[in-house]
Write a protein that binds this DNA or RNA. Sequence first.
DNA 1: CGAGTCGTTGACCTTCCTCAAACGCTGTGG
DNA 2: CCACAGCGTTTGAGGAAGGTCAACGACTCG
Lengths: 243, 243
Amino acid sequence: MQQSLDPLARKLGAFVTLGERETKALEALQGPRTLIAAGKEIVYEGQQQHAAYVVADGWACSYKELQDGARQVIDIQIPGDFLGLRSFLLRRSDQSFTTLTDVVVTKIATDRLVDTFHAVPRLAVALLWAASRDEAMVVEHLVSVGRRDAVARTVHFLLELGAKLKLVGHGSATEFPCPLSQSVLADALGITSIHLNRVLRQLRESELLIFRDGWVTFLDRERLAALTGFDYSYLDLETTALR
Amino acid sequence: MQQSLDPLARKLGAFVTLGERETKALEALQGPRTLIAAGKEIVYEGQQQHAAYVVADGWACSYKELQDGARQVIDIQIPGDFLGLRSFLLRRSDQSFTTLTDVVVTKIATDRLVDTFHAVPRLAVALLWAASRDEAMVVEHLVSVGRRDAVARTVHFLLELGAKLKLVGHGSATEFPCPLSQSVLADALGITSIHLNRVLRQLRESELLIFRDGWVTFLDRERLAALTGFDYSYLDLETTALR
DNA sequence: CGAGTCGTTGACCTTCCTCAAACGCTGTGG
DNA sequence: CCACAGCGTTTGAGGAAGGTCAACGACTCG
């Protein structure tokens, strides 16, 4: 789990110790690195035979758009995250993906996935674990949007994002780089960007956290965690089962 | 895909034709049928080594509770649905499950899951497809709660529930049995039960749908679908790939 | 018969949305 | 070099959707 590993291997390493065999198989599953410029659509909702990718560098997001133009951001993808993997069996993508910064991705050879699962079951378990964790985060996101007010929702989202980033070696306990615009963040939280702006001001003036210039700084983690009842356990990072 | 099949086989049959081999393997994966009374906790959040089940009959739901007592219902499980499967790799369950009616379940032998995947890849694909579809529904639920108003959210949820039920042979195009209380439904929709009650009255008075006495009746499907931009495609039911 | 749950309705209030305007920054073309 | 468009951010004023509190009727179960 050194800094030199690629982010996905680093993330999976938090769950399963990957030997040379697993690392090799993981590399073999991925195509060449490809650069995609910021603001580009990668997969659109309804697209057929869409591909799946791993983000090697940069930020992307998945979202769905309603007919009235409203947008709900489902998830933010950072280095080490899958993009479109969970729906590779569906005939058409159930959501859209766009880059938020310049992004480097590798394509996953989904047709080789089943064979790899046979050959390297340890890797299979690691990949399924990562997919389960991602889904647990979507569930937690649903809880937030359904049952927390705008302040708690915002704080929870940023705490979680910080934890995710730390796992792949970005940011520290008190701050992390965050290239999200307020409108993207608002679309993730299910509030308007105007209201988000007021929430952020309030958080800044209460000396809880600062969201500015592409950085998030936590000023008082204890009060922040208390505000949302934030509990890291669903991130499933505590102990590692398969060493 | 006859009525006589068990609901899970029936559902999977909408995606993959299951031969005798697959059907046998599916049965072998499940333990004996067990009855659980209405209102019982099946798995609680944080439980370790939680089991996974298939609902054979009855209704259940998954939810998370916040420290202030608010509850967000994630998903409703009807016959043929998995219960706790998507997180069997996590060390502790990320959500709670409770029965809404008397329920019959079978336990899934998760320890045999990987072997079964080797032996019967066609079944593996079918199970992963079902899991992907379930997750697509959670995503759509998130979109609803984040970006639709209470009326559209309610209508969308009930249309979707009707479609799901039809797939396992319950209800018709115009009505279906629905043992949900208004407070459970409200907790699923992220609104208060008081407000839901007003929404339901409004829908009834506009002659759009009736929610009463454990039944939902659609009075005008066209207007209902238009109201929410309801699109069945994410349910991935159109054509069948693997015949 | 009494307690408990579910559904229903009213009055009032908070949160968040809508509309509107203005500022700073960046990139682009005259 | 400057003008200007475009985007993201910030702020204010007013309004609407949905929440809170309270009360009551219908029904079920012990």
